[in-house]
Simulated assay, not measured.
Amino acid sequence: MDQWFMANLGDAMLAGDELDHVCALFELQGNRSPTTAVLMRHENLGRLHCELVLYFPPELADLAARVGAYPCGRPTLSGLGVAVGSPQRLADIMVGGMT
């Protein structure tokens, strides 16, 4: 399964509580790979402020569903960072591993 998911947390300056909630749920997640992560990017969607968008890899589909994320394609690497989890997940995207 290679379906990714995304959740737009809105204005990055106001997204702290929602981000903390997602991070807490991630930490409670059992049976997750030690190299998985929720990824994030600040995206300018034509509004005054950038928005914080989270990307959930296929192995975190259950977590994505819990936070109302919706299906998307695999994110591009540009500007992508780790919200919570292993930095190895970014390297996996770079080399095309772990869809």
Rank of each mutant, 00 (worst) to 15 (best):
A61L: 14
A91M: 10
R74I: 06
P57N: 06
M94Y: 09
C72E: 01
A65G: 14
P57T: 08
I93V: 05
L54H: 09
V53Q: 02
G68Q: 05
G96V: 10
L80I: 01
V84F: 01
V84E: 02
G79R: 08
P71T: 06
L80R: 00
G85C: 08
G68L: 05
D92P: 06
Q88M: 10
G73F: 04
L52H: 03
A64P: 03
P75M: 10
G96M: 10
L63Y: 01
L48A: 12
R74Y: 08
H49N: 13
Y55A: 10
A69M: 01
R74Q: 13
S86H: 00
G81L: 07
G79W: 08
P75Q: 11
S78R: 09
G85S: 08
A65D: 15
P58Q: 08
G96F: 06
R66A: 08
A83H: 03
C72M: 10
C50G: 08
D92I: 03
Y55K: 13
T76I: 08
M94C: 14
T99I: 08
R89C: 02
T76K: 15
G79E: 07
C72H: 02
G73D: 12
R89I: 00
M98H: 13
R89S: 03
S78E: 13
L63W: 00
A61K: 15
Y70M: 12
